[in-house]
Computed example of a mutant assay.
Amino acid sequence: MRGLLLNISVETNSPGWQVSQLQQRLLEKWELIGNQFAGSLADVSFPGWLNSTLVRLIIHLLFWVMIALLLILLMWKGQQLVKWYKRKIKSRNNRKIIKNIPEKKQDYSVDYWVIQAQKAEKKGEYQEVCQCLYQAMLQQLDSRNIVPHKSSRTDGEYEEIIVKIPQYQSYQQLLWIHQELCFGNLSASISLVKNCWEAYESIKRL
């Protein structure tokens, strides 16, 4: 019972629920204002050319169109706020997942990381797929004596070196994806995994 009450409390305190309640209150407020305005229009004495039923109907219609557009804008802004909050939470969770993946070790071969990426893809663990292909790239740079491995070397330092070699774009793409997954708001997806595989296959052909 306490668990159920706790879940209800969390849901009612979430930004999404609060935005929903705010939208509901705004809808009720604008409906009240609209009804009051419409009632006041009925008592207003218009000039002769405005006294026709058609003109009054057009005025009423334009007023309600404006109200509807304003409400749509408010609801859209509310949805954007909820989506932003969800992306922020997801990004925070993604960074935690990535930190739990083992760091590169020199005795791990390129084939090892590729196999790990394939296993992760079968499980639908897209974060880990991207991370393993990133590690495979680093191992390949080390094996080819392009960039010797250093645990303290950052993505920025890798990029400064690889831009000096021909056809560095595929390396750069994997570095950028890794950096955005770890420190940005990028979320792993099937399409992102596809991009990682394409970049890695390009690197293999170099």
Rank of each mutant, 00 (worst) to 15 (best):
R144D: 15
Q36F: 12
K150M: 07
V10P: 11
S91F: 01
I58E: 08
P47T: 04
L181S: 00
K83L: 13
L141M: 15
A188K: 01
R95A: 03
H178A: 04
M137P: 02
I161Y: 01
I162D: 01
N7P: 09
W49V: 07
L61K: 10
F63G: 01
S45E: 15
W197A: 07
V10Y: 15
P148W: 05
W197G: 04
I8W: 14
S191D: 12
A120D: 04
L73D: 14
N195A: 07
S143T: 08
S20Y: 10
A136C: 04
L6V: 13
H60E: 12
Y200E: 03
C196T: 00
Y108A: 14
W76L: 13
K150I: 04
R144G: 11
E11S: 10
Q172I: 03
F63H: 06
S191I: 05
S151C: 06
N13G: 11
C132Q: 02
L27N: 15
H60C: 13
K88R: 12
I101N: 00
N35C: 08
V147T: 02
V114L: 10
R205S: 14
V193A: 03
K29I: 09
Q173I: 12
N93E: 15
L70E: 06
E157W: 07
Q139F: 02
K88M: 11
N100H: 13
R25G: 05
G48V: 12
W176F: 12
P166I: 04
E201V: 10
V10L: 15
N100P: 08
A199R: 00
Y108V: 12
V10I: 15
I177V: 06
A42S: 13
M1S: 12
E201I: 11
K104M: 14
W76N: 09
L61G: 09
K104R: 15
I203N: 03
W176Q: 11
Q21C: 14
L141Q: 14
I89S: 04
K90T: 02
R56H: 04
Q36V: 12
I190G: 07
V82K: 02
L50T: 07
Q169H: 05
V10Q: 15
E198Y: 12
A68R: 05
Y158R: 07
W30A: 10
C132V: 01
N7V: 12
L74V: 14
E128N: 01
C130I: 00
E103D: 14
L32V: 14
E103C: 11
G124D: 03
L181N: 02
L6H: 11
L62G: 05
Q36K: 13
L186W: 01
